[in-house]
Amino acid sequence: MNKLNPKTELDILKERGLIVGKNFNFFNSHIDYGHCWLVEIGDDVTITNSTILAHDASTKLQFGKSKIGKVKIGDRVFIGYNSVVLCNVRIGNDVIVAAGSIVTRDIPDNSIVAGNPARIIGKTSDYMEKHRENLKTKPVYDTYWPYKTREQIEKIRNDLEHDYGYDE
């Protein structure tokens, strides 16, 4: 958004027919501008540095037509950095798409997928339970990243020399 054009990219996509639910987090990502009206995104979804495509132009030169298909993303979905979701794909509820994944087919509820093409590697519920337990024993930091002091940063660096923790 800027002073000359107060509309964000997301505002424009919604005007063009993109459907999004509540608490949609859209960071440095791209949703198919020409076919955004074929994309539906549920509640509590985060998409980070990724691409959602509702068309496939591989047939355009040969036939003069692009393949198009709906993309439906359920509730409580996280799409990790540098992932691509191709057209005609449904992603269920409570799904984690690992960074760098290429989603070429439907993903059922409660799944973690990774790879190219993305394949199921686990259950979201198991993953969350593991981290719920780890939060009791691993280092946890509560200052949001832009407000960390140099001292806090140095402490975190030292704490995480041989393990991981959790941050705000």
Results as ranks from 00 to 15, higher is better:
Ser66Trp: 04
Pro117Ala: 08
Met128Asp: 13
Asn2Gly: 01
Glu15Thr: 01
Gly69Tyr: 04
Leu53Asp: 03
Gly34Glu: 14
Ala57Cys: 11
Val113Thr: 12
Asn93Asp: 14
Asp32Leu: 13
Asn28His: 11
Trp145Ala: 13
Glu40Cys: 07
Ile31Trp: 05
Ile102His: 05
Thr143Arg: 06
Pro139Val: 13
Val97Asp: 10
Asp167Ile: 06
Thr59Phe: 10
Val20Asn: 07
Ser125Lys: 08
Arg90Asn: 14
His35Met: 07
Ser83Ile: 13
Asn93Thr: 02
Glu151Gly: 02
Asn5Cys: 00
Asn110Cys: 07
Thr124Glu: 08
Thr8Pro: 02
Val89Cys: 04
Cys36Phe: 01
Lys65Leu: 14
Glu154Cys: 03
Asn28Ser: 15
Thr143Tyr: 04
Ile91Asn: 05
Asn134Gly: 02
Gln152Asp: 01
Pro6Gly: 02
Gly64Lys: 05
His162Phe: 07
Met1Gly: 11
Ile120Asn: 09
Val71Ile: 10
Cys87Leu: 11
Arg76Phe: 13
Gly100Glu: 12
Asp75Met: 10
Pro117His: 03
Tyr164Asn: 13
Val77Phe: 08
Lys123Cys: 06
Glu151Tyr: 02
Ile79His: 14
Tyr166Ala: 11
Leu160Thr: 07
Phe27Gln: 15
Tyr144Gly: 01
Ile12Leu: 07
Ile12Cys: 01
Val20Cys: 10
Asp109Lys: 14
Gly80Val: 12
Asp109Ser: 11
Ile19Leu: 11
Leu135Ile: 05
Ala118Asn: 06
Trp37Pro: 00
Asp44Thr: 01
Asn110Glu: 06
Asp126Cys: 08
Leu18Trp: 01
Asn110Val: 07
Asp56Ile: 06
Thr48Pro: 00
His35Leu: 05
Phe27Glu: 15
Lys70Ala: 14
Phe24His: 13
Ile31Met: 08
Gly165Gln: 10
Ile52Gly: 07
Ile91Ala: 07
Ser50Lys: 03
Lys148Thr: 01
Lys136Leu: 09
Ile102Phe: 12
Asn116Leu: 07
Ile153Gln: 02
Ile47His: 09
Asn5Leu: 00
Tyr81Met: 14
Val39Lys: 04
Ile12Asn: 06
Met128Pro: 08
Ala98Trp: 04
Phe26Leu: 04
Gly122Cys: 09
Val85Gln: 04
Glu168Tyr: 04
Ser50Cys: 07
Asp142Pro: 00
Thr51Phe: 04
Lys67Met: 11
Asn82Asp: 15
Phe26Ser: 08
Asn25Ala: 03
Ile153Pro: 00
Glu154His: 02
Arg157Ser: 03
Asn2Lys: 04
His30Gln: 14
Gln62Ala: 15
Lys60His: 10
Asn49Glu: 14
Thr104Gln: 12
Gln152Leu: 09
Val97Arg: 09
Trp145Cys: 11
Lys60Tyr: 10
Lys130Glu: 13
Lys67Gly: 00
Leu61His: 08
Thr48Asp: 09
Ile31Lys: 06
Glu151Ile: 05
Asp126Ile: 12
Lys130Asn: 07
Ser29Pro: 13
Leu38Tyr: 02
His30Ser: 14
